[in-house]
């Protein structure tokens, strides 16, 4: 299974060159780039852990790439995404976000159905990986 969150998940995994070009696009727009990681890829898990603060005022993508390399070294077996934040009035939110790292194996999600009144169903989605304790979810 391949999680398709983020802007470029239907393309082959981006190379570092491609990632840094996207980062440069964001920096040139004046957006702050943020690195986040998680081992719970539930589609509504909004708050991934932050790798440091969003990087404000960087002129060049190499600075972000340096942090990304470090983050990947520490969390090679987790999902890592880059997101860029636009503080402009009327947006003040994320402008782009895309995955830059994924675990080797992605076991995907269980869809749990609970029968309710009438023919209605209540649905719950859980990542199979989330059955294991946090921090050990994608160990081999």
């Amino acid at each position: 299974m391949r999680i398709t969150q983020g802007c470029f998940s239907f393309l082959p995994d981006l190379t570092d060159g491609q990632i840094s070009r996207q980062v440069q696009y964001c920096l040139d727009k004046g957006w702050a780039v943020n690195i986040e990681f998680t081992d719970d890829p539930h589609p509504r898990n909004t708050f991934w852990d932050m790798w440091g603060l969003p990087m404000f005022d960087l002129p060049d993508a190499a600075g972000v790439m340096m942090e990304l390399a470090e983050c990947r070294r520490v969390y090679a077996d987790r999902y890592i995404r880059l997101s860029a934040f636009d503080s402009g009035h009327g947006w003040e939110s994320v402008k782009i976000s895309f995955l830059v790292n994924r675990p080797k194996e992605e076991p995907g999600f269980r869809l749990h159905r609970e029968e309710a009144a009438g023919r209605a169903l209540r649905y719950t989605t859980t990542a199979y990986a989330a059955d294991r304790p946090e921090g050990r979810r994608y160990e081999g």
């Binding site: 999680i3 969150q5 890829p41 589609p43 995907g108 169903l121 649905y123 989605t125």
Partner: peptide, 18 residues
Amino acid sequence: FLYCMEAVNKAQAASGEI
């Protein structure tokens, strides 16, 4: 509505996307 939401939830679980 019932069949559409079954489809939506199944696709959500299959992709990890909303």
